[in-house]
Amino acid sequence: MTPALVFDGLLALLAVAAAMAAIGGRDLFGSVAFFIVYGLLIAIAWVRLDAIDVALAEAAIGAGLTGILLISALARVERTASSGESGEGGRLAKIAAALLCAGVAGALAWAALALDPQGAGLTPLISEALPQAGVGNPVTAVLLNFRAYDTLLESIVLLFALVAVWSLADDGNWGGLPGLRQHARSDGVLATFGRLLPPFGLVVAVYLVWAGSENPGGAFQGGTVLAAIWLLVAMAGITELPRVSSLPLRAALVFGPAFFLAVGAIGALAGTFLGLAPAAAKAIILAVEAGLTLSIAATLALLVAGSPQRTQG
């Protein structure tokens, strides 16, 4: 038994244990904590499988962003829900949910086991088409060229999620400032950290997007880093997030998907919706990724900030 095999075995056991703890725990906060641990373990598993793009996305979005969304959702539930235990109906719903999840997990396991372990999958097709894709990273080529409509729809779904979060606002707060007021001391540690980290974060975010054409990285990973930096600066009290009625904010939210759609439409005029001419592909992909990064960063940050809950700063 090689050390690598022992490591992978432990990793798989820990991931399953964290998943069981997340769904089996009675304490919701504990479940969320284990969900975040599970996401980080899965990110390490993707690194072990040499899927660095997926690992970055899992760590940033799966563990980090989803984790913080779950924590803030939990805080909202605790603020608003009555303390009554769920009755018989709740138990039935839980059993139905458990059966549904077990069914989906079983189907996924069956699909994974049914794959030919020696099979090359789509790799030969992608390697063959890669010279025409404009970028050297096959993941970026798939996401922004070969299967661009998946990415386009994802970026639009994110916008819909934000609209859904905003629609939870009270009428009086509509158009106001997102989230509760931040109480950070202007000379406190968070304010210092909020001034220290942004330069690093900006460099990392731009690098992730720029390097994404040849190396692991891309708009979602870079956008998540930007969103985290923006939120940190807002939480440290250095800046205030804009009102949800702010026109520059809404323009930033819509710009990426709209530009992506426009590129797709131009492709449609030339013959294929979202089709890219090989000569221009690299420039177009980088432009689309830059626009998407801006919109994804704004959308994710505002998703975490929550629905508008006040009109005064």
Binding site: G188, V189, L190, T192, F193, L196, L197, F200
Partner: peptide
């Protein structure tokens, strides 16, 4: 250095 900074900040909070 970044981990130390983040850990110290979060510990204070």
């Amino acid at each position: 250095v970044l981990v130390v900074g983040a850990a110290a900040t979060v510990a204070q909070l």
